[in-house]
């Protein structure tokens, strides 16, 4: 009673899925020769919702999915012309929902007056929930969410507590991973400079 038409139909669907990859392999073979389907430049087609046929496995670590610009990895501090943009205002530490940011403001060694830069900056990425509030609410665009994801570590206290040295990233890194945002920033900066020049 159970083995009847619809069961065969269901099996047909799985079987079609099974052969689809081979059919697609052949299609690519006629287009581009042996192994054409798995060349890195075909990744966008294999990963497209409408054009992909058959298996769509990303052959990590040989190839990687491109991360979208807005992807939130772990925070980093932008260093521009040898100086951090950060002014140690502490907004990020205040908005951080799990409270994993710790800042000590630098002070002038001679006068003891507080400076507008951090002396120490720690982010405990073993607590960080990657919400991106620090980057979203930073008034100086100094902290951004990076795109580093491959940071598996052997030691929790040594490797997962990021200090100033590990948080510091050059501006070019920011420009590379956030092109649109960087362009908008530059535009704003130029507009501001132009307005100042006009005055």
């Amino acid at each position: 009673m159970y083995a009847s038409l619809h069961l065969v139909k269901s099996l047909g669907i799985t079987f079609r899925r099974f052969v689809e990859t081979y059919v697609d392999d052949l299609r690519w073979f006629f287009k581009g020769g042996f192994g054409a389907r798995y060349r890195p430049d075909t990744l966008p087609i294999r990963q497209s919702p409408t054009k992909s046929r058959g298996i769509f496995t990303v052959q990590y670590p040989a190839e990687r999915l491109p991360l979208p610009e807005r992807f939130r990895g772990f925070p980093f501090l932008i260093e521009e012309e040898g100086k951090l943009r950060c002014t140690a205002c502490g907004t990020c530490a205040r908005v951080c929902p799990p409270q994993c940011i710790w800042i000590v403001r630098a002070s002038d060694p001679e006068t003891g007056k507080p400076l507008r830069e951090p002396a120490e900056f720690y982010i405990d990425i073993s607590i960080c929930m990657q919400c991106g509030f620090c980057a979203e609410f930073c008034p100086f665009d100094a902290i951004k969410m990076g795109h580093e994801i491959e940071i598996a570590a052997f030691d929790r206290e040594k490797d997962l507590l990021l200090d100033l040295e590990r948080l510091r990233k050059p501006l070019s890194y920011h420009a590379q991973i956030h092109p649109t945002e960087y362009a908008a920033e530059q535009e704003k900066k130029q507009a501001r400079a132009a307005a100042r020049a006009r005055k």
Partner: peptide, 10 residues
């Protein structure tokens, strides 16, 4: 240890 919340599949 793999930090992240949650870590990406990669």
């Amino acid at each position: 240890y793999i930090p992240g919340c949650p870590p990406r599949p990669e």
